[in-house]
Design a binder for these strands. Structure first.
Length: 432
RNA sequence: GUGAGUGUAGUCAAGUGGUUAAGACAUCGGAUUGUGGUUCCGACAUUCGCGGGUUCGACUCCCGUCAUUCACCCCA
């Protein structure tokens, strides 16, 4: 019989206490930023009906990456690969009851059947931020402002990342009205555009001609891709997508966010439900060139459930890529332990007394660990040192005889004696 | 799904055909039975992912297999 493996399932992670400390701290900081923008937390189930994704999430995600199975009642269910459909379902369920705009965020774990590699696992936690009920581009602007604030909050500089922005309708109009592509040509052309930055020009042109593009179409497309947004007015000035992007950038520039935002035609996004502006936040560090955030506008998703239609904008940010970002830029915060005090134990006759001390300190608002079995004092201090607990309280026979307790500050090594009644105040003073 | 790299202790590893498998960190015990971070001593791989082959002899070479990492694809 082979032994059970202690490894976590492929593409998943164990979070040991030292990992969890860091995760809690980083997630907590992200959460705090969202709260500062007036967003409220929500959550939903990890399992959803398969159909929820089949309709709008996009072919690759559903056919190749979905963890799905039949439950005991014969219903086809899926482990959530993304949060937006759940969000849309929840918003649709409450329909008009919700006061608008709706500002919600969540930190769900998501599952995708992928081949694990740098920045991508099978289970990851994703911060999801959504703003619903606003049709104007100001919604995108706020959401983008949040994305930037999240990164800036960890000390990222404005040259460390870039927000790359495109518009679904602009691309549709380019394909239909300017290039006049056949519908079946679009995916291949879109893929070529996406790859363009990574491959030589000739190869890019080969891909396009393989997709059935004429020389003229290739020229037009190249011109389009190289032009700054403003120069596109002559060819796509009538496009609603173009006008929307202009309004968006006017506001972004007015707010001084212009330098980190860039129009980029290669941003396509795989999810089918996007209807307007789409964007990705890219790490600009050469060792970590990847998307940290992805999102966009989905005006028809809530309406899919049959009630009223509510427009929405949102993005997701994955923990795996985000931690890579922090690591790469040297921005990883230091995770501190939460325990303030260790109450030691000299011998068993003092156990009840020691436990009472611990209880009193907890009642005063401190986080307190008790030593439960007598150990050499050296071990107890060593244990506090290893765990980073800054204070050790001792009440052995000597202290008890005098009605006192000893407190040692592990950082300075200094030790003081005082009556038990003075202890909570003394310790709290160290934290103010 | 395709391609490449890597598998030696809890972790990082040395070892590249000759038999007691370096070292470091971590862990545990002791020096030090009322005080940690330093120091010193000791313990910790019958065995090199697994299976087979070549050889007098394999951690070392070959084949297979599994695991893992990276890249493609796509994305968080």
């Amino acid at each position: 019989m082979s032994r059970l493996s202690t490894r976590p399932y492929k593409g998943t992670r164990d979070f040991f206490p030292e990992d969890m400390r860091l995760r809690d701290q980083v997630f907590g900081q992200l959460r705090q930023t969202l709260i500062s923008f007036g967003y409220e937390a929500y959550d939903g189930p990890m399992l959803e009906p398969f159909e929820l994704y089949a309709a709008k999430s996009g072919e690759e995600l559903v056919n190749e990456q979905l963890y799905s199975f039949e439950d005991r009642g014969g219903r086809k269910v899926a482990m959530r690969p993304e949060m937006t459909p759940t969000l849309a379902r929840m918003v649709a369920a409450r329909g008009g009851q919700l006061s608008r705009p709706i500002r919600w965020f969540s930190q769900p774990n998501l599952w995708r059947y992928e081949r694990p590699q740098r920045g991508r696992l099978r289970e990851h936690w994703q911060l999801n931020v959504d703003l619903l009920g606003i049709e104007q581009e100001i919604a995108e602007v706020e959401v983008m402002q949040i994305a930037i604030a999240l990164l800036r909050g960890f000390g990222a500089g404005i040259t460390d990342f870039e927000v790359q922005i495109n518009h679904r309708q602009l691309m549709n109009d380019l394909f239909d009205k300017v290039l006049q592509l056949q519908t079946e040509q679009v995916p291949a052309v879109a893929r070529a555009i996406d790859k363009r930055a990574k491959i030589p020009t000739e190869q890019f042109e080969t891909l396009l001609s393989e997709a059935g593009c004429s020389l003229l179409q290739i020229q037009q497309l190249t011109h389009f891709l190289d032009a700054p947004l403003m120069d596109l007015e002559e060819i796509l000035g009538d496009s609603e997508g173009f006008q929307s992007l202009c309004r968006f950038f006017d506001q972004v520039n007015a707010m001084g966010l212009g330098p980190v935002c860039r129009f980029k035609a290669s941003i396509m996004r795989g999810l089918d439900y996007y209807t307007g502006i789409v964007f990705e936040v890219f790490d600009k560090h050469p060792d970590n060139r990847r998307a940290l955030f992805g999102g966009g506008r989905y005006d028809n998703l809530v309406g899919m459930f049959g009630g009223q239609s509510i427009p929405g904008v949102g993005f997701g940010m994955g923990d795996v890529t985000f931690f890579d970002f922090l690591e790469t830029h040297g921005l990883m915060p230091e995770a501190k332990g939460m325990t303030n005090v260790l109450v030691g134990l000299f011998d068993n006759t003092g156990l009840t007394h020691a436990l009472q001390i611990a209880q009193e300190l907890r009642a005063a608002g401190l986080n307190v660990e008790s030593v439960l079995t007598p150990q050499k004092l050296g071990k107890q201090f060593q244990s506090a040192d290893k765990k980073g607990i800054p204070f050790v309280v001792m009440a052995g026979p000597d202290e008890m005889a005098e009605g006192l307790v000893s407190v040692k500050d592990m950082r300075s090594g200094e030790q003081a004696q005082m009556p038990l009644t003075a202890l909570p105040t003394y310790l709290l003073a160290q934290y103010s």
